[in-house]
Amino acid sequence: MTLAFVALGANLGDAPATVRIAMAQIDMIPRTRVTARSSLYRTAPFEASGPDFINAVVAVDTGLAPEALLDALQRLEQHAGRERPYHHAPRTLDLDLLRHGDAVLATPRLTLPHPRMNERAFVLVPLAEIAPELVSAEQLTAVAHQAIERL
């Protein structure tokens, strides 16, 4: 089993419910179990427009390879009605694989660790809540100007 982290976000429909349902659905992915869930956080869209986002991070133990886990996460997005009409479009559900053990990967489909996670309070703050050893005080200071509200 490998410890992985997944960021969740939604800003269309009942976003808090969507994120909570997605947490439960991630726990039902074969050979994958959610081991920790952050609180829900409200954030303004980052490099995007639309309603505020609801964000969270979950830790999972998984027996799936990174690409297989990504495939499963993308199926959950599609099931939630995710469309990709343009870059940074509002979304019913966004699931990002942040880390998969110590994997370092750069393919056309997947880069690990997630290449922009250290730039985003909506990732670092919930990640720090469930895995404080992975987020430094300096990283949190660097994103402190980004508004984020724990719900």
Rank of each mutant, 00 (worst) to 15 (best):
M1S: 11
T2R: 09
T2G: 05
L3Q: 14
L3V: 14
F5P: 08
F5M: 12
V6N: 07
L8Y: 05
L8W: 07
G9Q: 01
N11T: 02
P16E: 09
P16N: 05
A17W: 01
A17K: 08
V19W: 07
R20Q: 15
R20M: 13
I21F: 00
A22S: 11
M23G: 10
M23P: 01
A24L: 09
I26R: 06
D27C: 01
I29L: 14
R31F: 12
R33I: 06
R33S: 15
T35Q: 04
A36D: 14
A36Y: 04
R37E: 15
R37P: 03
S38K: 04
L40Q: 11
Y41I: 03
R42P: 02
R42C: 10
R42T: 12
T43I: 02
A44P: 00
F46S: 03
E47V: 05
E47C: 12
E47N: 11
A48S: 14
P51T: 08
V58C: 11
V58G: 07
A59G: 13
A59M: 02
A59C: 01
A59T: 00
V60I: 12
D61T: 09
D61E: 15
T62E: 02
L64P: 04
A65Q: 14
A65Y: 06
A65R: 11
P66N: 07
A68Q: 13
D71G: 03
Q74S: 11
L76I: 15
Q78M: 11
Q78I: 10
H79S: 14
G81E: 03
R82P: 01
E83H: 05
E83P: 00
R84S: 10
R84E: 07
P85W: 13
P85M: 11
Y86W: 15
Y86K: 05
H87P: 13
H88P: 00
H88C: 11
T92Q: 14
L93F: 07
D94M: 08
D94Y: 03
L95V: 07
D96F: 10
D96N: 06
L97P: 04
L97N: 06
L98R: 01
H100E: 05
G101M: 06
G101H: 09
D102Q: 14
A103W: 02
A103P: 01
V104R: 15
L105N: 02
L105Y: 02
A106F: 03
T107C: 14
T107K: 12
R109T: 11
R109S: 14
L110A: 12
L110R: 05
T111A: 15
T111N: 06
T111K: 11
L112K: 04
R116N: 10
M117A: 06
M117C: 02
M117N: 03
N118W: 02
N118F: 10
E119D: 15
R120Q: 07
A121M: 09
V123S: 08
V123K: 04
L124C: 03
L124S: 01
L127G: 01
L127N: 01
A128S: 15
A128P: 01
I130M: 12
I130Q: 09
A131G: 09
L134V: 05
L134E: 13
L134T: 02
V135W: 09
V135S: 08
V135T: 10
S136F: 09
Q139W: 07
Q139G: 12
Q139S: 10
L140E: 09
T141A: 15
A142M: 02
V143T: 05
V143R: 05
H145K: 12
I148M: 08
I148Q: 09
I148F: 03
R150K: 15
R150V: 12
L151T: 00
L151W: 10
L151P: 00
